[in-house]
Design a protein around this nucleic acid. Sequence first.
DNA 1: GTGTTTTATATCGTTCACGATGCAAATATA
DNA 2: TATATTTGCATCGTGAACGATATAAAACAC
Lengths: 167, 167
Amino acid sequence: MHEALKLENQLCFRLYTASRLITQAYYPLLSAIGLTYPQYLVMMVLWEQDCLPVNDIAKRLYLETNTVTPLLKRMEAEGFVSRSRSSADARQVIVNLTPKGRSLENRASCVPLHIGKAIMCQSLNAESAPALFATLDDIISTLSPVATAGPAGSVGSEASAFPVDSK
Amino acid sequence: MHEALKLENQLCFRLYTASRLITQAYYPLLSAIGLTYPQYLVMMVLWEQDCLPVNDIAKRLYLETNTVTPLLKRMEAEGFVSRSRSSADARQVIVNLTPKGRSLENRASCVPLHIGKAIMCQSLNAESAPALFATLDDIISTLSPVATAGPAGSVGSEASAFPVDSK
DNA sequence: GTGTTTTATATCGTTCACGATGCAAATATA
DNA sequence: TATATTTGCATCGTGAACGATATAAAACAC
């Protein structure tokens, strides 16, 4: 019996499960305003900065364009965004918020607080949250192809032999 | 502008991204032995305890049976498991490892260490990992319908107003 | 300026996830 | 014993994810 192959010793399984369960908690809140969770992520990108090419949205979300393209098409069909070829560079497709998409921000503004209440628990609170954020950011930057930009060398974590996913 | 709607303040986005990127790191290791990541999770359940009904596998992985059923069918087609109706209760479908499925455990035993090396980083190490595990377990038990079993009342986290997903 | 390479997006096929729903077997209730 | 309810699994439809591949525009090489 391989101890390292026990479910209870898996980090990724915990991340995967926590992510899925929180996404399920979003479901009733988001479906009330007509969005899925990945669509909500795209909207958050565009609310921060409108008028972005597909590639910038994909990079910001660490997704491939072949995931984002159909996502944007569905959002265009729902009337939240519009897509148009750039005149400067005809390869690029620029994504814009429609008035309907822009107005959704106010209706979504209560979502984070609701979710915050739902996932609050003993080991996740105002003190522990920043450390959790930092750890997840570190994992993400370690695994993301080149990171989005930032200082060249970045963290550079030398891979050690510590078996994180096997305790 | 709603600060709580900024991507940088989202916990779920970090979990979702970290989960996806780690799953991608598994991909080359698992495809070498013919498994996808969700299939690998099912195998870990069965390596720990063989001969389980569909429902037990689903509960252990916090998945719905309508996700697990087609997953198991594909695994049966690949020859890793067999499925058969229980004679004691004809509603149940019992899942068994085939010899091929059982023998896969040895070939998979090197996977956790490889992944551990890949995701090691500054803020995730032998000291910090247990705390991260505990936090994720706490989130999962807070959000999972009834938890799998355990002491009745469980944690009972009183929902506070702390906006976890909005800083 | 022609040929090669790179870049930006899209198409295709497969595998999850999951809400909604269906159905048959088991169990509870009348 | 009939009827109603619950349980276990399955089917269906939709929306991600993503590897592999395609296509056209831009950038580069010569």
